[in-house]
Simulated scan of single mutants.
Amino acid sequence: MSDLFDIDAQAVRLQQRDLPPSSLPQSQTLPPLELIHAASAILPHPSDPGFLSGQPATDVARHITEHIVPALCGQSQSSRYFGFVTGGVLPLAEWADNVVSHMDQNVQVHLPEQSVSTFVENAALQMLIGLLRLESEWKGRTFTTGATGSNVLGLACGREAVLQKKGASVGELGLLGACVKAGVSEIQILTSGGHSSLSKAASVVGLGRASVKELPRNSAQPWKLDLDAVERELARPGTASIIAVSMGEVNTGGYALDDVDEWKRLRQLADRHDAWIHADGGMFEPNMPKPRF
């Protein structure tokens, strides 16, 4: 890590993005199976003598470098795609990630006279808002840990919002108490081609996996949301609704809605029935035009 902040030393790696693919070092996406087996075989085991004994730092680093690293998948060093949306990383992003780990800041506490970290995060969020063409003063913004974390946060916000519109608060009364006060017997999550983390998040925030209802437009394109079915579900008495819209289904990159008119209709339905819209941005289909919503 001694050369992390030596930009001249980092220049070769940072400039790789602009080089032709033929000139770049070719990295294997997957390691040879024998290396995986070899690395697994020498991992500490509870039956080993000295299982929890400390080791010299240099020995640990050498073990990781010589045995563990060669047995890891190498998609970050390659343009090749590897599952679970962990494809290659831009050289600059890789370097920045190392900086973040090295400096180990705490951006959950705003200490403007002690660190610029929270200002940096806020600036990055504002740039993301601009990229997504949202309002410049969009106040609800934060970074999450990933798919499950973002869905947990989105569903928690939605759960609170749909019950607040009926005069109750989960934060004050708890989920059961808020539902009783609001006269709600069910909170449902309407989606199409929902990511597995959506159901996981539903269980975490107390709505349950069974609350997730798939409403595909057809069997050929299950990620397309059936707005007629959404309208019927929203009209059910005693029900509060969260609509989770797939903004790039992870297997196909397909969008739940086709155009601005469908988004407008969904927005009108949500407003009419006091529903919450949760946009689940999985990944983007490269060849799909990106309309202004």
Rank of each mutant, 00 (worst) to 15 (best):
A11P: 01
A11D: 08
V12M: 05
L14S: 04
L14A: 01
Q15A: 15
Q16Y: 02
D18Y: 07
P21L: 02
S22P: 03
S22E: 14
S23K: 09
Q26P: 05
Q26E: 04
Q28Y: 01
Q28C: 05
T29H: 00
L30A: 03
L30E: 01
P31A: 01
P32M: 03
E34A: 01
L35M: 00
H37S: 02
H37L: 02
A39R: 03
A41R: 11
A41G: 08
I42L: 08
P44N: 06
H45T: 10
P46V: 08
D48L: 13
F51H: 12
F51W: 06
L52N: 08
S53A: 14
G54L: 06
T58N: 12
A61S: 12
A61R: 09
R62C: 09
H63L: 11
T65Q: 14
E66M: 10
E66H: 12
E66W: 04
I68W: 00
V69M: 10
V69H: 04
L72H: 00
G74Y: 02
G74Q: 00
Q75E: 05
Q77N: 07
S78N: 04
S78G: 02
S79A: 11
R80T: 10
G83I: 14
G83W: 05
F84P: 05
F84H: 15
F84R: 15
V89D: 02
P91F: 07
A93D: 11
A93I: 15
E94T: 14
A96M: 14
A96F: 12
A96L: 15
A96E: 07
D97R: 15
N98H: 15
V99E: 09
V99D: 08
V100L: 14
V100Q: 12
S101W: 05
S101Y: 09
S101H: 13
H102L: 13
H102P: 01
H102N: 13
H102T: 15
M103Q: 12
M103Y: 09
D104S: 15
N106W: 00
Q108C: 11
H110Y: 11
H110W: 11
L111F: 01
P112V: 05
P112E: 07
E113K: 15
Q114W: 08
V116K: 05
V116R: 10
V116W: 06
V116F: 07
